[in-house]
């Protein structure tokens, strides 16, 4: 059947997407987006495995049977770009929280209530 690593990847992606669909707080949505990125990176790394292989580094190497190094080089870029996206999203949420008179919905402006930290009410 399916190996255990692919099941973990499926669960990470589904949990991340369900977090984006069902949560209301901004910080929880950002954490869920981060979980989707982690699941995709895990899947990309697990594609290059070779049975009985060691890490592709020749310093004090034990054997010469190595796993493939190309997916590892690709997810370095992916991790850094996910980090940049998360940093931008977090600072946008700080901006939303600090300037409340910018993002009031029209219904709450008529009632005179302050906008809360959730995205929909």
């Amino acid at each position: 059947m399916i190996s255990l690593i692919f099941l973990t990847t499926i669960f990470l992606i589904v949990i991340g997407i369900s977090g984006v669909l069902f949560q209301r707080n901004f910080i929880k949505i950002i954490i869920a987006i981060n979980i989707i990125g982690d699941g995709v990176n895990l899947f990309l790394i697990s594609l290059g495995y070779r049975e009985g292989g060691i890490a592709p580094i020749f310093t004090n190497a034990v054997s010469l049977n190595m796993v493939s190094p190309t997916p590892q080089a690709l997810i370095l870029t992916s991790i850094v770009i996910n980090l940049a996206i998360t940093a931008l999203l977090l600072s946008l949420s700080v901006l939303i929280h600090s300037s409340e008179n910018l993002v009031n919905s029209k219904k709450e402006q008529d009632e005179g209530k302050p906008a809360s930290h959730n995205s929909k009410n």
């Binding site: 600072s91 700080v94 600090s98 300037s99 008179n101 302050p114």
Partner: peptide, 13 residues
């Protein structure tokens, strides 16, 4: 930037 941010335009109802 995030740690030293001060709220400037916060209006109180």
């Amino acid at each position: 930037f995030i740690i030293r941010h001060k709220d400037q335009n916060k209006t109180k109802y």
